[in-house]
Design a protein around this nucleic acid. Structure first.
Lengths: 148, 148
DNA sequence: CTACAATCTGTAGCGACTACAGATGCAAGG
DNA sequence: CCTTGCATCTGTAGTCGCTACAGATTGTAG
């Protein structure tokens, strides 16, 4: 696997090294470059990508924003805002708050879902009874929880 | 729009009528047929789909299962189980419980996310201050919440 | 020098639809 | 009967955020 264990990746930062450093998949890095999120790095003599600290930082920024659930388009906006340096804080905050609102809504929906499903599962004995309450609920002509 | 308002869709149930009855998009209905979730209905003289009650029921079943967050593959399984009528209840319950567990986990993740984001947003004043705490957090070399 | 690993480009696949384009079908009005 | 105009038809491509190949090249350790 690793050919040495003391010094880590002494040479130029290839895409594999960047992947290890940032925790972002190699294919994903190339994908980010293709869609213009990560600027194309300089290449070695044999056309291999050589990255610098700026790329690494930017990629980590992207990864973290993704972990916070921002879409790639939102990440693009955040990166643009970060670059322009003016009136950014308000815009970032607004974007974030929208995002929080969306997350809250999703949580509400999921919790409602979870309640419905666990109710159904609780009513289901798991025996070989003729009818299953879950299938019944799905088949019932009218239904309480999500009627269009 | 509607050419009459007393009797609703007197003639044969075309795909548009089925869509209205079930709340499922026309294109989605054709999609379900294409992937084999909905059996191909008989056609009119001019090759238009004519649906019966069984199709409608099945489509409503699918819609409800989707609303409960089951994937199309899971829906396929549920439909298969419903058809076979034996030992179904236990299998359905197991599927549902797995599903509930997955939902709970997702809710946990989202709530953690929401906390982090709203903390960040709260720390952000929204003024034209030089630095934005949100961007700072995204840029920080180390980070508390989601460190790989 | 020879293996073998890493990287390269380009393309296609995933899930669950949605959105067209361009060709027909069908029902009502004149 | 004929036109008008919507509905429906098939087929294909786009969405999002990757992931997984294939087949060619490059880099590196022994």
């Amino acid at each position: 696997m690793r050919r040495d264990n003391t010094k880590m990746r002494a040479g130029p930062t290839t895409i594999g090294a960047l992947s290890e450093n940032t925790g972002v998949n190699v294919e994903t890095i190339r994908y980010y470059e293709r869609i213009g999120l990560l600027p194309p790095p300089p290449r070695s003599a044999g056309r291999q990508r050589i990255y610098g600290d700026a790329h690494c930082q930017r990629l980590v920024f992207i990864r973290r924003a993704r972990e916070l659930g921002f879409s790639l388009e939102e990440v693009r906006t955040l990166l643009g805002l970060g670059a322009s340096h003016d009136m950014t804080c308000a815009a970032v905050r607004s974007l974030t708050q929208h995002h929080v609102a969306a997350i809250r809504e999703k949580v509400r929906d999921l919790r409602r879902l979870e309640r419905t499903l666990s109710d159904l599962a609780a009513r289901c004995q798991g025996d070989t009874v003729p009818a299953c309450p879950i299938l019944d609920a799905l088949n019932a002509p009218t239904w309480q929880t999500t009627q269009r």
